[in-house]
Amino acid sequence: MLFADSGLSDASISVLLAVWSLTAVVFEVPSGAIADRFSRRSCLVASGLLHAAAYASWVLFPSFWGFAAGFVLWGLGGTLTSGAFEALLYDGLAVNGDAELYGRLNARVDTITLVAQVPVAVLATFLFSVGGYDLAGWVSVAMCLVSSVIALRFPEPPRGSSEDHAGYLDTLRTGLREAVPIKRAVLAVALVYAIDAFEEYFTLLVQDWHVPTVWVPLATTGVPLLGAAGAALGGRLRFRGWVLFASGLVLIAAAVLAVPAAIVLLGLFYGLYRFVLVQVETELQHRIESEARATVTSVAAIGSEFVAFAIYGLWVLGAAFAVGVLVLVVALVIWRR
């Protein structure tokens, strides 16, 4: 819905998304170290405030530069969440001796997040039809502020006394050093998570498949539901490479059909993809041993941003078909038996 009525070209939209990714590339790892050195909960609170400012920028300045400023703010907010949330969740379980439950709980969080997109889509359709883009935008600002208030109530377990004396640069170096021996897990998360950048184009894709703008949110409600189903099943199959490969084939089939009915295939692609994403994220968290957990996770995230640039370029060159081919390549790289 953000781009649906913006009047921007596909090339301009890709440039804006690249600005978002570039912001993440610059601040991803430093923000992870901030979460490890200081407070992960505070990072989540600040993230909500920055996201609220981003929406305000998009509403107040609906031009290329207004969108660009908003994406810088959105990128900064995203870097504060990335790594910090996973570390807060994992350490909260580990302090009670329940670290093995992380995969199940992480899948549940992903499932709830995706299912929540359905009522949000219904509300967005209502707000857009009643008050247009401005009303939908200001309600989004309010919701981001509410998320910061909720984050204030998250419990944050105490960490080791050695970290109390570690400086910011020491924390940063610790996280970067640990990412090296577990580089295969880091690479898997980087490659797979990057594919999620394609979600930003779902509304444009559905519009290209001849769905009226006002009905786009409702027409795509099944996509996050199938994504939620995939996330909920994450970790139950032995091999993940062939699942991701299958999702690429499904996306290519949807791109070839290019009709409203292909939204079903788009949802199936997203469900298979989410299944794999939960698996690789869980494996990475289990392999991190130091207290610089958010920093290591951010290293994987920054890798995903570089791959996301390819997603943006492929959208301009070949839309969904080209992205489907990239998914096949990623699946072959991470395929393990």
Results as ranks from 00 to 15, higher is better:
residue 272 L to I: 08
residue 257 L to R: 00
residue 272 L to W: 09
residue 292 A to L: 12
residue 260 P to W: 01
residue 283 E to V: 07
residue 259 V to W: 12
residue 258 A to P: 14
residue 261 A to V: 13
residue 288 I to T: 05
residue 251 L to C: 06
residue 266 L to R: 02
residue 280 V to Y: 06
residue 291 E to W: 01
residue 279 Q to H: 11
residue 265 L to C: 06
residue 271 G to L: 11
residue 280 V to G: 03
residue 266 L to H: 02
residue 268 L to W: 03
residue 268 L to F: 01
residue 292 A to W: 02
residue 286 H to T: 08
residue 256 V to R: 14
residue 266 L to K: 03
residue 268 L to S: 02
residue 267 G to A: 09
residue 292 A to C: 10
residue 276 V to C: 15
residue 271 G to W: 13
residue 256 V to P: 15
residue 260 P to H: 06
residue 287 R to M: 04
residue 284 L to W: 09
residue 282 T to K: 10
residue 275 F to V: 03
residue 272 L to G: 13
residue 264 V to N: 01
residue 266 L to E: 01
residue 276 V to K: 02
residue 292 A to D: 07
residue 274 R to Q: 14
residue 271 G to C: 10
residue 288 I to F: 02
residue 259 V to A: 12
residue 255 A to T: 10
residue 279 Q to K: 05
residue 267 G to S: 06
residue 256 V to Q: 14
residue 261 A to G: 12
residue 252 I to S: 04
residue 253 A to I: 09
residue 287 R to H: 07
residue 257 L to C: 05
residue 274 R to I: 13
residue 279 Q to R: 08
residue 268 L to Q: 05
residue 278 V to N: 04
residue 256 V to M: 15
residue 282 T to E: 02
residue 286 H to I: 05
residue 276 V to G: 12
residue 258 A to K: 14
residue 280 V to H: 05
residue 291 E to N: 10
residue 266 L to A: 00
residue 259 V to G: 09
residue 251 L to M: 15
residue 256 V to L: 14
residue 266 L to T: 05
residue 277 L to T: 01
